[in-house]
Each structure stands twice: as structure tokens, then as C-alpha cells.
Design a protein around this nucleic acid. Structure first.
Length: 150
DNA sequence: GCCAACGTTGGC
DNA sequence: GCCAACGTTGGC
């Protein structure tokens, strides 16, 4: 899950403990939240569009997809006139911080052939949420972070 | 700040 | 349904 640290970084999540992943306005990313992300699923927290892009922590889904309130808020930049409470268009999940990790930078990720097919590393990838292959998950956790995969 | 890549919009 | 134009993302 990508976030710009200037907007909401790992330290914000460390402070809040739990946060709603609102503001996603991309259909593919929405569908991942709506159709695939289950409570207890884990995710890498990735800092994007910043000086040192990369993975900085691990988060866990704490609430499944539900309508994103900002789509109904006329004052929000995420307002969507086509969305109604009866027919919401956008959803968000909630995630909690599992732990901060050492930063595993994008450049470092790219050096590992084992991770070459990671979606988040694909050229031109702009999706804020991408699935992580279990083998990639384990590799990063065990080999790059020195954690025990669960 | 630049620019490549991508998703969305809207004219036709 | 095609596709050009546009806006956004995000690494560098």
C-alpha cells in the first residue's frame, strides 16, 4: 500500500495505530480492497513520491471495505457527484500498524532478481495498492528484513 | 522540475 | 467503440 509520507507516512500510522485508507479513486485499487483484502491480511507500507521511496513497515487489514465517506462530501477533493449512499462508488479499508521495519528502498528492491516481477516495481506502475506474491512477501520479510514470515 | 507511463474523459 | 487530449503519478 503506497502513501506519500508528506500526506500520510509510517510515523503517522505509528501515532494513530489504525487508519482508514480513504481517497483511493482508481478502480483497480478499489477492487483489490473490495474483493481481496480480508481482515488479518498483511501489507507492506510503501512511501512513494518522496526522497527515499520504499517499504518502511508492515500493516494489517483491521476492517474490510466499506464506503469511503469523502465521496459524499462536497467540500472534499475526493467528492464524487456520481456516488450516492445507495450506490457508493468508492470504498476504503482500515489498516493497523503491525510494525515499522528498516527502510527497504526501491533501489534495493530492484537489485534482487527474485523480486523482478513484483507489480510495484513494474515500470510506470501507478496503482496505490498492488497484490504481493507470497514468494515475494516471504523473500522481503525473511531475507531483507530478517523477520520470520507468518 | 522533467518526463514517461498510465487511467479517464469525451468527441465523434 | 475508438482514440486523442488531458490530468495524475512517481522516479529520477
Amino acid at each position: 500500500m503506497k502513501s506519500e509520507p508528506d500526506a500520510y507516512g509510517i510515523d503517522d500510522l505509528a501515532r494513530d495505530g489504525v487508519t482508514a485508507w480513504w481517497g483511493v479513486r482508481n478502480y483497480q485499487a478499489r477492487n483489490f480492497m473490495r474483493d481481496q483484502m480480508k481482515v488479518g491480511d498483511r501489507a507492506f507500507f510503501y512511501h512513494s513520491n518522496c526522497k527515499a521511496p520504499g517499504i518502511v513497515g508492515i500493516a494489517e487489514v483491521s476492517r474490510p471495505a466499506y464506503p469511503d465517506a469523502t465521496q459524499f462530501d462536497r467540500k472534499s477533493r475526493f467528492f464524487d457527484a456520481r456516488a450516492t449512499p445507495e450506490n457508493p462508488r468508492w470504498v476504503n479499508v482500515e489498516v493497523r500498524l503491525v510494525k515499522k521495519t528498516r527502510p527497504v528502498g526501491l533501489a534495493e528492491l530492484r537489485t534482487h532478481a527474485e523480486l523482478a516481477t513484483m507489480r510495484v516495481l513494474a515500470t510506470g506502475n501507478r496503482l496505490s495498492i498492488t497484490p504481493v506474491d507470497p514468494a515475494h512477501w516471504r523473500f522481503i520479510l525473511e531475507r531483507l528484513m530478517g523477520e520470520t514470515a507468518t
